[in-house]
Design a protein around this nucleic acid. Sequence first.
DNA 1: ATTACTAGTAAGCGAGTAT
DNA 2: TATACTCGCTTACTAGTAA
Lengths: 219, 219
Amino acid sequence: MKPYLLQTLKEIAKLGAIKNKIEVSSEELAEKIETSQQTASRYLLELDKKGFITRKLGIKKQIIKITNIGEEFLKKEYIDYQRIFELSDKIFFKGKIVSGIGEGRYYTEQNGYIDQFKEKLGFIPYPGTLNVEIEYIEKNKLRLLKNHDTITIQEFKTKNRSFGGVSCFKAEINGTSGAIVLPLRSHYSNILEFISPDFLRQKLDLKDEDIVEIVIFLN
Amino acid sequence: MKPYLLQTLKEIAKLGAIKNKIEVSSEELAEKIETSQQTASRYLLELDKKGFITRKLGIKKQIIKITNIGEEFLKKEYIDYQRIFELSDKIFFKGKIVSGIGEGRYYTEQNGYIDQFKEKLGFIPYPGTLNVEIEYIEKNKLRLLKNHDTITIQEFKTKNRSFGGVSCFKAEINGTSGAIVLPLRSHYSNILEFISPDFLRQKLDLKDEDIVEIVIFLN
DNA sequence: ATTACTAGTAAGCGAGTAT
DNA sequence: TATACTCGCTTACTAGTAA
């Protein structure tokens, strides 16, 4: 949706046009959005054509109501703002399922990790990690993790080699609980590794390239 | 603020740029807002020039943070959405103080009204009503009153004449409590009549033409 | 790599005005 | 009264490209 249409739709909503029909003239609306009568008229035509509002032209003014489609758009916008200002204990990501190189499985089968996962996260992960590729730009959100306490999995050694520490956050993927694991000593990558007691590819019917939503819980 | 700048600022905020500095390239941002790299670059320059963000150009990408001014703009926007979706038990008006023709005083001095005001609103109004002119278009919000229970002041008769019923809603003007009175049998006008135990023009230092905010409480 | 300038094109705007 | 069309003007857009 074009930004100016969204702003216009919001102004109409502020007048109560979600719950009630309202009566406006293009001139009055023009004043509200600080533009000309002609432009306001054009906006109303566009909003109507796109199905965001319904209109009935009277002799004077027009009777307008926001449609369900229009309301949905505004709600999405509202959720964006809620996430910006309120839900600062949650971070939302959209990402794409990708295949790792099987490393995840190797690590999640180490008893040194398993014992700590059980103790600190409360579950034994299904072997392997579900890798979710996020957009490069979204990595910025991971900075928010820095300000919060992490669940830290300590490094340990086996007779063959040593395993580094890992930092975890409780998380959900498409509504299913688990955790995100981040290597302690490395930069954030644009792959999020998700662990869970369940075999998620099966449980959630996920294939490579599928789009998923991840919520990371802080605290 | 131009709608497209606001939308851009919101996208930047969604990446966490209110709390943290974030690292973005104009190309990445362009993808987010579905435009070209050049346009994203221009938007960033505009946002910077207007003081909504600070930027530091690296060799790669740019480090961006939203300023207090930028945050305030987004918060205002957020409040708009809250009022649309959440605060459906409050209606907000901006209006302008105007002088009536002294009618308000005559009515508010009738014992038939006074007794009921005291009983149903809990106060005896200072003689007279404070008249607030709202924009014509804002009258639409008054429709929302229809869906809610009103405090009804019954009609009554004196030996000389009869006085019509009035519908009231608890309200605040610039934070001071009182009530809005609406004649029962008439169309909504674009003048809101506010009553209060206090002499509001003095208490709030109001003169004609002053802009005030009124909140009407439903329920 | 990335930013942002230039310049040509497209989209948006609003005065005038028909309806 | 209104709405909304035309049309000349302005703003916004992006391909190309310099820095």
